[in-house]
Amino acid sequence: MIDRLYYFIMVPMVYLAVAWCLIGIAAKIVRLLKAPQHPTTLQIFPETKTPLLAALVDTFTLPTVREHRPLLWFFLMTFHVAFVLLIVAHLDLIPQLSIVSGASHHMIGHGAVGVALTVSVLYLLFRRFRAPVRELSVPSDYILLLLLFCLFLTGDVISWANSWGQNGFVLSKQDFGAYLNGLVKFTFQDPSEVLSGGHYTVIAVHVLLANLFLMILPFSKIMHSFFALPLNALRRA
């Protein structure tokens, strides 16, 4: 029974979650594009000669946060940069996309990326328990951060703990690559055949949390990852 549950989480649910996420994001963008444009400017002055460039800088370097909340800015930048690296590191696992040397047993960052994410998400979570941010927060703010924390923690266990065994790597980058290769090629192969060992349960939990994250994403504030640039563009021009 548990094997079938693991299989569902590791294979069909991944496809469902990705499809759900993509359709949800597309629906959200279409709904937004269908809405009428605002009739007046929402610009804040002074003007800049290159509003798009300014909006890009605003979006990717968060200057207003740096100015008013330097500590939050540090953790936000750590979080977002590490998140991008995390996506790259996961893509690197797919043999067809191999971005860095395939010979290494480690993921990109050797586990540091996951730790950076875990620490920064913990900071973001803890600051929500302090006034006045606590008074502004709603349940989804905590749940999303908690979900991310658990997701990153299980990721840390996979990427760090697998090298702590007496026999060296229990599961290597190549093993994960084999699993993702099966997903990409729609082989519907049982992942336990390529991801054997004591960490399989942790991987299943990690994938379950990732699936949940993908399913929630289009209906949550995480969509700011797509809309931060157009939002900043409104302020700039």
């Binding site: 709904r31 937004l32 594009l33 809405a35 009428p36 444009q37 605002h38 009739p39 929402l42 946060v65 939050l72 941010v133 502004l136 927060s137 709603v138 703010d141 504030k221 969509m223 700011h224 809309f227 931060a228 157009p230 939002l231 409104l234």
Partner: peptide, 14 residues
């Protein structure tokens, strides 16, 4: 409007 939806949807309550 598009702007209003963006403003209402994307606040992270930071």
């Amino acid at each position: 409007t598009r702007a209003a939806r963006l403003y209402l949807d994307n606040c992270t309550r930071c």
